[in-house]
Amino acid sequence: MPEAGALRWPLTGYGTRELVLGTALLGGAAALAAWVWAPLAIAPAGLWLLLVNFFRDPERVPPEGEGKLVSPADGRVADMVRVREEEFLHSDALRIGIFMSVFNVHVNRAPVAGLVVYRGYRPGKFHNAMGPEATRENECSSVGIERPDGSRVLVRQVAGLIARRIVTDCAVGDDLQRGERFGMVKFGSRLEVYVPTGAAFRPRVKVGDRVRAGETVLGEMGAPGA
């Protein structure tokens, strides 16, 4: 998986194509604008800075503690609801939805350590990620993780109104560490974590809280069936 440490700036390898293309186009636009009238170059230069800012990938240090479930995304907790999850868990679950604006870091990180035992993809629409129809109808990619104790968690990347490309950089059989990068949703969207109600999950956040991927503890999981 791409690592930021090899770069002078903490930029994700998931955005290489967009950064190269954007730099070429906006650099050319800035040069042309400056040739016409120097202050005009400010606009494309500002857009380039926004592009670079979007693909930033700062290092994160996950908290210690086996049962801690960390946020898979930067953003704001948009909802916490009990649902029936039939794609992977096949059980009642608590869904924690996290909305990412275009100003958030968009690299996604594993909420728990464990083995990837499921990958799923659903083509769909591109509703506003804040709307209730987004979780039902939007394009999404799902990753099912089984922890060493046998408990399972589903994390789902959901496309939004602006986000039109989901990157899921893991496969069935991969071992993920808590807080490890596993992909991103480009240009704003939503991440969802599903925890079975039988996992004795104790939430540590509430709707409206700001969270950071790989660091903010969303809650603590007990033993399966506890």
Rank of each mutant, 00 (worst) to 15 (best):
P2A: 13
G5W: 06
G5S: 15
G5Y: 06
L11I: 14
L11H: 05
G13E: 11
G13S: 07
R17H: 08
E18V: 05
G22P: 03
G22M: 10
T23G: 15
T23P: 02
T23M: 08
L25H: 10
G28F: 09
L32Q: 04
A33W: 03
W35P: 00
W37P: 05
A38R: 15
L40Y: 04
L40V: 06
I42S: 11
I42Y: 08
A43S: 06
A45C: 15
L49H: 01
L49R: 01
L51E: 05
V52L: 15
V52C: 06
N53G: 06
N53L: 12
N53S: 14
F54E: 07
R56D: 04
R56E: 04
P58C: 10
E59M: 07
P62V: 07
G65V: 07
G65L: 10
E66K: 12
G67M: 05
K68R: 15
K68Y: 06
A73W: 11
V77T: 04
V81C: 03
R82Y: 02
R82I: 11
V83C: 10
R84Y: 00
E85Q: 13
E86L: 00
E87Y: 01
L89T: 01
H90M: 04
S91H: 14
S91V: 05
S91Y: 08
L94T: 15
I96W: 05
F99Y: 14
F103Q: 09
V105F: 05
V107G: 07
N108I: 04
A110K: 10
A113T: 02
V116T: 11
R119G: 03
Y121T: 07
P123K: 13
P123F: 03
P123Q: 11
G124M: 10
A129N: 07
P132M: 13
P132R: 14
E137L: 14
V143H: 00
P148K: 06
G150H: 05
V153P: 03
L154C: 00
L154M: 08
R156P: 01
Q157M: 03
V158R: 03
G160A: 00
G160Q: 02
V167L: 12
C170W: 04
A171S: 13
A171L: 11
G173Q: 10
D174L: 10
D175E: 14
L176C: 10
R178H: 04
R178S: 02
R178P: 01
G183Y: 09
M184V: 13
M184P: 01
K186I: 02
F187N: 01
F187C: 04
G188H: 05
R190C: 00
P196Q: 14
T197D: 09
T197E: 14
P203S: 10
P203D: 09
V205S: 08
V211W: 12
R212H: 14
E215K: 09
T216R: 10
V217L: 13
V217M: 14
L218Q: 13
G219D: 12
A223E: 15
A223W: 08
A226M: 11
